[in-house]
């Protein structure tokens, strides 16, 4: 009895008068709101600074968005499936450290492969714990993230780890600009992963099942969907995205350490939600996460270009997230 009779009445009447159109209007308005915010900032920055619309700045902007963008892809996927993954940055750290350690023994390629593998395995462990122990994913991944951070400390003995001198340059390959107008390899990796996640969610039967599980787990189960396997897969993909983000961070710094990217999982979740992905699950899209990332990155970029004091940046970011979520809530009120 979660849906009120009032609602039912409204919906039934809505249907009679072409409610599909009304629903469509709401959706469009919401998309519009988020996109409008981004456009407004872009226009404002283009007009007030001479540097914003330069290739250098845009390339830089994309590069800045890569790490949080990969994490936002992970967060979006997991949130749509009706769960949370607070361990992504801990997985990121363990993966990055693995990359450094394995690179030392077996070369850069092996190091990167090992990092991705570790990310996938840790993600799958998250999924298995959530599915079998049936603790809320928020708590389960919080506890697991503490364990993973601890594991990272053990692996590094608490120090910053570096790849061997002779391969240090190759290890940083991801941070290099490419022939594509100077766009960094990290940015390309981010765009590639985002495109894959987007297609998987929007076009595959797996994506359909992810939405169904997030929207109504019991209905999905009774429709013959193996909820447990899908959940484990979603968490594993989340882990792989985190590992790739870890490779980028490690490449930029030429090193890895246990405290890498601490707190960034919340930025990623915020990006997903700001874009309009529902924290209740079952609704959202990768592009929404990307819009959210763009918005958050633009604010940092804007502060930089305008020469504003960055001590205000966090306040603005927080206010923006709150504003976007309130707006979302407002537009959904007729449904809630």
């Amino acid at each position: 009895m979660t849906t009120t009779a009032e609602n039912e009445a409204a919906l039934e009447a809505a249907e009679k008068a072409g409610g599909g159109a009304a629903a469509g209007r709401f959706t469009r308005l919401r998309d519009f709101g988020v996109v409008l915010g981004v456009v407004a900032i872009v226009v404002a920055l283009s007009l007030t600074t001479e540097t914003f619309l330069t290739t250098g700045n845009l390339v830089n902007l994309l590069d800045q968005a890569a790490v949080v963008g990969l994490l936002a892809c992970a967060a979006t996927l997991v949130i749509i499936s009706g769960a949370f993954d607070l361990s992504i940055t801990a997985v990121l750290a363990v993966s990055a450290i693995t990359a450094v350690v394995v690179t030392g023994g077996a070369g850069v390629a092996a190091g990167m492969a090992a990092a991705v593998l570790v990310g996938g395995v840790l993600g799958a462990i998250n999924g298995l714990v959530v599915v079998t122990v049936k603790v809320h994913s928020f708590i389960a991944t919080l506890a697991l993230s503490i364990m993973y951070r601890g594991l990272a400390v053990i692996l590094t003995a608490g120090a910053i780890v570096y790849p061997p001198e002779d391969v240090a340059t190759a290890f940083q390959a991801l941070s290099w600009p490419t022939v594509l107008g100077g766009i960094t390899a990290a940015s390309l990796l981010f765009l590639l992963v985002a495109a894959v996640c987007w297609i998987v969610l929007a076009r595959t039967t797996f994506g359909r099942r992810v939405y169904a599980i997030g929207g109504n787990e019991e209905a999905a189960r009774l429709s013959g969907i193996r909820v447990g396997s899908i959940r484990v897969a979603v968490f594993a993909i989340s882990g792989v995205c985190a590992a790739l983000a870890g490779l980028i961070l490690a490449a930029r710094g030429g090193s890895a350490q246990a405290s890498m990217a601490t707190g960034m999982e919340l930025t990623a979740i915020a990006a997903a939600v700001v874009g309009g992905t529902s924290v209740l699950g079952g609704e959202g899209a990768i592009w929404r996460g990307l819009i959210g990332v763009l918005l958050i990155t633009l604010i940092g970029n804007g502060f930089n270009l305008l020469g504003w004091d960055t001590i205000y940046q966090q306040v603005v970011q927080g206010a923006l997230i709150l504003g976007a979520v309130s707006f979302d809530r407002l537009l959904r009120r007729s449904r809630a």
């Binding site: 849906t3 359909r208 169904a212 209905a219 999905a220």
Partner: peptide
Amino acid sequence: RKEQGLVLGRSVRENIALASLG
């Protein structure tokens, strides 16, 4: 249908297809 049958937030099409995606 609300609790066990349909994924209310998803489209008519996705709901109809859900049990026979394969």
